[in-house]
Every structure is written in structure tokens, then in C-alpha cells.
């Protein structure tokens, strides 16, 4: 099984660094593609804009999506992903520091696969990342539509 890409949509470089560090500490070897905002996330997924020419069939194993994003919000990105035939089954995990219930409810309504809170305590964060990686990267079968 080839290691698949993880798409990390995160505008905060601190959080990006900490997330990657957490992945490393959990020995996750996957490539991590980091995009900075919602628009870039969609460009990447649909091979448009600055990612034009990218193989659209090559979808990430999982997308980690922050909610507070410049340009397009995380929830809007999620809505677009679920709208599109090709990306409908793409695993999306919302990764956010928000504890607001409405975010959680709205996220599930729009079809996110999981909702992970980013704890302040890094150890907790590492633990959350570990569980996330185990589940989505090791256990979960990738939907057939994304397979070549």
C-alpha cells in the first residue's frame, strides 16, 4: 500500500508546525500537503488555479480541515467537497480549536467524517493526532472512486 498524501488546510503556521510535529511523533510517514486557505484547498482538490495540471484523480487519503480560514471558510470548503461527484466520498476531518456547538453540528450536517478539537495542551494534541492517524490512515479503506 503506497503512502497517500494528507491534505492539511491550515492558515496558522504555528498550528501547521505543531500538527506536523505531532504526526512525526506518531511516526506517520505520509506526505502532508499544506494549503493556507479555503480557495487553495479547493484548487488543490480540483486541480484548478495554481494547481492546474495536477492529476485530479490523485486525491488525498484524508483532508484535515481547519474552520477558521481566510477567503473561504472551512465549512464552505466542506460543502463544495460534498457537492462535487468526485470528492463526495473524500474523508474530511474537521480540525479546529473551536468548541462551539454550532460548528460541530454544522460540520456533521455538511458531511464531515470526524471532528477533532485542537487542544491547547500539546500532549493531548499528539494523542488526538495519533488516534486520527490510526483510524484514517491505517484502518479506513479508501473509497473505490479515488482508486486508480
Amino acid at each position: 500500500m503506497t503512502t497517500k498524501t494528507i491534505l492539511l488546510v491550515e492558515d496558522n503556521p504555528d498550528d501547521e508546525e505543531l500538527t506536523l510535529r505531532a504526526f512525526r511523533k506518531n511516526n506517520m510517514k505520509n506526505d502532508v500537503m499544506v494549503v493556507r486557505d479555503g480557495v487553495e484547498a479547493l484548487d488543490y482538490l480540483f486541480a484548478t488555479g495554481k494547481y492546474e495540471g495536477r492529476d485530479v484523480v490523485d486525491l488525498p487519503q484524508v483532508t484535515l480541515l481547519d474552520l477558521n480560514l481566510p477567503k473561504l471558510s472551512g465549512l464552505e470548503v466542506l460543502r463544495r467537497i460534498r457537492e462535487h461527484e468526485r470528492t463526495r466520498a473524500l474523508p474530511v476531518v474537521i480540525l479546529t480549536s473551536s468548541r462551539e456547538e454550532r460548528d460541530l453540528v454544522e460540520g456533521y450536517r455538511l458531511g464531515c467524517n470526524s471532528y477533532v478539537r485542537k487542544p491547547v495542551n500539546f500532549e493531548s494534541f499528539v494523542e488526538a493526532s495519533r488516534q486520527l492517524g490510526l483510524y484514517w490512515l491505517l484502518l479506513n479503506e479508501v473509497p473505490p472512486s479515488s482508486a486508480t
Binding site: D14, D15, L18, S98, E100, K118, N121, F122, F125
Partner: peptide
């Protein structure tokens, strides 16, 4: 409140995370 919940936490997370690092 929403921004507090998101944006106030991010620096904290960075402080904590990098302190541990």
C-alpha cells in the same frame, strides 16, 4: 466569543506546544 474561542486559543496552543518542543 467565537473568535476568542478560536483565535485566543491558537497562540496558547503555540506557546504550550513550542514550550514542550
Amino acid at each position: 466569543s467565537y473568535s476568542v474561542s478560536h483565535d485566543l486559543r491558537a497562540p496558547l496552543r503555540a506557546i504550550d506546544g513550542f514550550s514542550q518542543a
